[in-house]
């Protein structure tokens, strides 16, 4: 009986939508455009995030030691660094090795090294982090901790600019989230407006239905189905449009360039589903907001 009733309401909802096709199509298109914009943002951020993660993977902390550190102190220091949270490996690079490396890299400027009386380079500990703790804040904290050791003259962690980029990225993320919220609200109001229009155009019909004993729910149920359906369909269409755009872009980008750099990927299924779900929720909410003040006995 319950499912029979649901089928009855769904049938009525689709009849209603069919008799107001234009209004519903406009609503669905508007929702899909909002969803397209939101999911385009989503696509942009997932891919930027991928790039950032791959950059951060290469992050190492170089701890430069003071000149007066004795060789016997080294094992103990190494152990202390290893015991810090988030450290996966510590490698000691003696200043002699570092100089050799430098000389190899700068073969053509060999003359520069000829007048060197002593090695100007310090000994170095190269610290690698456990991948899961490679979030930018943790790197900074760890670097600061290492710098506290008296034997350490200074630290350097890879590309310091990465920190600044992360900041900008987070700012963008915040702006993107705010924008998603705005578009969500827009979808809610679009649905609310459509439902309100439909409701007003048919209020005489509903008045009659109430007089012959229809409950509030009986009258409203098809509207909720319509609102939810508009939300789902708008969401799916928006994401499909984005997918088509994505396919066009990726097939036109020279694979030689992109593969060396990173592979652009589409929104993960979980995020796509989440977007469709919130679009559906927007449909429901729009319906709720526009119907809650109607049908007071």
């Amino acid at each position: 009986m319950k499912t029979e009733l649901l089928i009855f309401f769904i049938k009525r909802a689709f009849q209603d939508m069919n008799s107001n096709r234009f209004l519903h199509i406009v609503t669905i298109i508007t929702i899909s455009l909002s969803i397209l914009i939101v999911s385009a943002f989503g696509l942009f951020f997932t891919n930027i995030n991928d790039i950032m993660v791959s950059w951060k993977k290469g992050v190492k902390i170089m701890a430069y030691l003071n000149k007066d550190v004795e060789k016997i102190q080294l094992p103990e220091l190494k152990q202390k660094i290893l015991s810090l949270y988030g450290v996966s490996a510590v490698r000691f690079i003696p200043k002699e090795d570092a100089l050799e490396e430098l000389k190899r890299q700068m073969k053509r400027q060999m003359a520069l090294f000829e007048n060197l009386k002593e090695n100007p380079l310090p000994d170095v500990f190269e610290i690698q982090m456990i991948p899961s703790t490679q979030n930018w804040g943790k790197v900074e904290i760890l670097a600061a901790q290492v710098e506290m050791f008296p034997q350490v003259a200074g630290v350097e962690y890879g590309q310091r600019w990465l920190g600044r980029v992360t900041g900008i990225f987070n700012l963008f993320k915040f702006a993107g989230t705010a924008m998603c919220l705005v578009f969500f609200m827009a979808s809610v109001f679009i649905v609310a407006n459509t439902i309100r229009l439909l409701f007003f155009s048919r209020r005489e019909e509903f008045e009659i239905m109430r007089l012959v004993g229809a409950t509030d729910g009986f009258i409203k149920a098809p509207f909720y189905i319509e609102g939810i359906f508009q939300g789902i369909l708008g969401g799916v269409i928006g994401i499909l449009i984005l997918f088509v755009i994505y396919v066009i872009i990726t097939s036109n980008v020279d694979p030689g360039i992109s593969s060396g750099f990173f592979v652009m990927r589409f929104l993960p299924i979980s995020i796509s589903m989440g977007i469709v779900f919130s679009s559906m929720f927007a449909g429901w909410l729009g319906c709720y907001l526009s119907l809650k003040q109607f049908l007071k006995y």
Binding site: M1, L5, F8, M209, V212, G213, A214, T215, F218
Partner: peptide, 8 residues
């Protein structure tokens, strides 16, 4: 039919 539909 409406009269009967509202009664389920």
């Amino acid at each position: 039919a409406l009269v009967l539909e509202v009664k389920g």
